[in-house]
């Protein structure tokens, strides 16, 4: 329980930092005053904190948690600790869905963006499941996922080639990945989808634990394998699609955060692991969002320039030390 509280405190601190720190420097005192509604200075400052930084921090928190949980679900479902929404091409599938919607159907509404992202993610998920039955080897399976990602990316490139310049620009901007795309008006849509997915993941804790023993054991313990698998994939698809539709394809959070969670917790028991992954996902995303702000300048780095710097070393660390990490053995 201590670790959860500790993570919760870090999360709050990072959230506060995200409000206080940005490309435009605003004194901490003013930020606090703005939040408590007693600020009487520049209206632009108040606007930046309330209309930009606050929704951006909430978005980072929820998107990070969503991606982290979808990574965890994939890792447990496929019994493969290196699975994740981006490595298995599910993010790219969502990406492709959005690309088709944006470029061909000029769709701008959030719900249709989410639905098209979900459709894209679902198609890749279905193909991935088909291959998971054919390819038992963990590494080979991951390579198939990576190939799926390449396929989706190349279809996107072909679509871009045929599209008009302004649409391509719109799409490319979205594809950089960032948490600032969700305005205060969009936030309720985004938040309700993300929270629905996260709640669904909490309801899956019991079957997820049984799945640690493999599907046959789980079936013998009374788990309805088919419907459980569908629910897990629905949850993964929903969370990946929501995060991707609003924030663009974000790499590494889904892959790396479940490892951070398991290593800090020292357990693969989903009863603790699911909540800790949610918290850790939020923390990592908020941290990445902070790091995109270049100190001393008013420009911002793309999010996907930062996430690998945090994620890749963690993955290399767990692979190198896999003999000494319990959940690998």
């Amino acid at each position: 329980m201590k670790k959860q509280i500790f993570l919760g405190i870090i999360l709050l601190l990072l959230f506060a930092c995200n409000l206080a720190y940005g490309s435009l420097s605003i004194p901490l005192k003013s930020v606090i005053e703005i939040l408590f509604g007693s600020f009487e200075g520049k209206q632009t400052w108040a606007q930046i904190v309330l209309q930009s930084r606050l929704p951006q921090a909430v978005t980072a928190l929820l998107a990070g948690s969503s991606l982290a949980i979808s990574g965890l679900l994939l890792q447990t479902l496929f019994k493969n600790p290196l699975a994740g929404p981006s490595i298995l091409g599910i993010s790219d599938g969502a990406n492709l869905g959005v690309a088709i919607a944006m470029i061909y159907f000029s769709v701008g509404s959030y719900v249709t963006t989410i639905l098209s992202a979900f459709a894209g993610a679902a198609v890749v998920l279905i193909i991935i499941i088909y291959f998971s039955k054919k390819v038992q080897n963990n590494v080979m399976f991951l390579i198939i996922g990576i190939m799926m990602g390449y396929l989706a990316s190349s279809v996107i490139s072909i679509l871009n080639y045929h599209a008009s310049a302004d649409k391509v620009h719109q799409y490319v901007m979205w594809g950089m990945g960032d948490f600032s795309g969700v305005s205060l008006e969009k936030l309720p849509y985004f938040a309700s989808f993300a929270i629905a997915g996260l709640i669904l993941s909490l309801l899956l804790i019991k079957p997820l634990n049984a799945l640690l023993l493999g599907e046959t054991y789980a079936a013998n313990l009374g788990v309805k394998i088919k419907s459980t698998r569908i629910l897990i994939l629905l949850c993964t698809g929903l969370l990946t699609a929501t995060a991707t539709a609003f924030c663009g394809p974000i790499s590494f959070i889904g892959l790396a955060v479940p490892h951070i969670a398991r290593l800090t917790l020292g357990s693969s028991n989903h009863k603790q692991l699911v909540p800790v992954t949610i918290l850790a996902g939020g923390c990592v995303a908020l941290l990445c969002n902070l790091l995109t702000v270049v100190p001393g300048s008013n420009s911002v780095l793309p999010l996907n320039a930062i996430t690998p710097i945090i994620g890749a070393p963690i993955i290399i660390y767990v692979i190198v030390n896999r003999k000494n990490i319990q959940y690998f053995n």
Partner: peptide, 28 residues
């Protein structure tokens, strides 16, 4: 079974408690 499990990261007690699954409620 002879099936390979993925349970290296849980404790002996936690694994044995999975045997109670058919007896426990929705949240286990």
């Amino acid at each position: 079974l002879t099936e390979k499990t993925n349970a290296g990261g849980i404790t002996v007690f936690e694994l044995v408690s999975l045997g109670r699954h058919p007896h426990t409620g929705f949240f286990g």
